[in-house]
Amino acid sequence: MSNNKKKKLTPTQQEYQQFANNREVVKRPLLKNCIKAFLVGGIICVIGQLISTFYMYFFKFTEQNVGNPTVATLIFITMLLTGFGVYDRLAQFAGAGSAVPVTGFGNAVISAAIEHRTEGFVLGVGGNIFKLAGPVIVFGVFSAFIVALIKTILIQWGGL
C-alpha cells in the first residue's frame, strides 16, 4: 500500500493493519509462485513449440507464418479446458504461468462469454466478452502506438 493512502487512515486503523497483515498466511509465497509459474508457463510454451513444429513439418508453413495456426490451436484447446472447468484449477496452481501465455488471454475471453450467456447474446455475451480482456487490448494497442511513435520520431529526426 502506498504511503499516500496510508495517511488517510486513522492511527487505530494503521495499527490494526500492522497487526493483521504481519502474518505468514497473508504474505504470498513469492518464490514458490514464481517457480510454479515458470514450470507451467514453460510447459505451455513447449506445447506451442511442438504444435508449430508439427505444422511446419506436415503442412506448408514457414517459421514466419506458423504463429497464427499455432495460436489458434492453443486457444481452441483453452476453450475446451475452460468449458470443462479445468483451466481455472490449473490457474490456481500456476498463477502467472497460465495467465501470461495466449491461453490465459483466451481463457479470460471465453470464461466471460460463458458466464454471461444467461443475459442473452447481445447484451450478455456481446457486452461482457471483453470484460476481462478489454483492458489488455486497450493498453496493448495504446502502448504499441506510443512505441511506434517513439520509433518514428527517432527515425525521422534522430537519424537512426
Partner: peptide
Amino acid sequence: YPTEYGGQKPAT
C-alpha cells in the same frame, strides 16, 4: 471474476 476464469486466488 467469471467462474471459469483462471485467476490465482491468494491463501486468504
